[in-house]
């Protein structure tokens, strides 16, 4: 019986990581599910859903040589796949401002009070080394009105001196 795993890989970015890792997994009979890869601060990061009839220890042994060769750390966990259960976001929040500690905590904390479920979060540190700028995009679902959610974020704009744009996502289905 096949099991689902979540495979996490982190390391210095270089061309060919996805190709090498996916080849090893495919050759061993693995099937990939949903995945998210990002280059964060020059580091390669990926999370892969992996469907295999091999046990966790065997997968580790299989991946170790390629991870040693490409200087990657990896981690693997058993998961329940839960495919075909996507939640569509109904709000999108863009945030930017002078980089400072606590932006994510403050914004996420405020959203959590509205039971906002963050479905996707991406952030970058742009600008120059002397004047870094923090830019974040959040998409998620909240069972409240646009005005209620926008009002709940008002104080933060002033406290953190950040710019926030909240927009409703009205998915068109045809």
């Amino acid at each position: 019986m096949k099991n689902w795993y979540m495979l996490t890989l982190v390391g210095k970015d270089q061309p060919g990581i996805v190709a090498e890792v996916s080849r090893v997994l495919f050759d061993a009979g693995g099937n990939l599910g949903e995945a998210s890869m990002s280059r964060l601060g020059g580091n390669f990061t990926v999370m892969l859903m992996l469907h295999m009839d091999t046990g966790k220890e065997s997968i580790k042994q299989m991946l170790q040589p390629i991870c040693d060769k490409m200087d990657l750390f990896f981690h693997i966990d058993n998961i329940i796949a839960g495919l075909h259960q996507h939640i569509d976001p109904n709000f999108r929040l863009s945030v930017h401002g002078a980089d400072q500690a606590g932006i994510v905590s403050a914004v996420a904390g405020s959203l959590a009070k509205s039971n906002f479920n963050i479905l996707n979060l991406e952030s970058d540190v742009g600008g120059s080394a002397e004047k870094p700028v923090y830019i974040m995009h959040i998409e998620g679902f909240a069972d409240c009105s646009f005005l209620e959610l926008e009002k709940s974020l008002q104080l933060l704009k002033i406290e953190k001196e950040i710019v926030m744009h909240l927009v409703p996502i009205d998915t068109m289905v045809g």
């Binding site: 996507h86 569509d88 976001p89 009205d170 068109m172 289905v173 045809g174």
Partner: peptide, 13 residues
């Protein structure tokens, strides 16, 4: 840019 879904492509937007 806007978000779309489709009857003919279930569970994806």
């Amino acid at each position: 840019v806007g978000r779309e879904g489709c009857l003919s492509v279930p569970d994806y937007t």
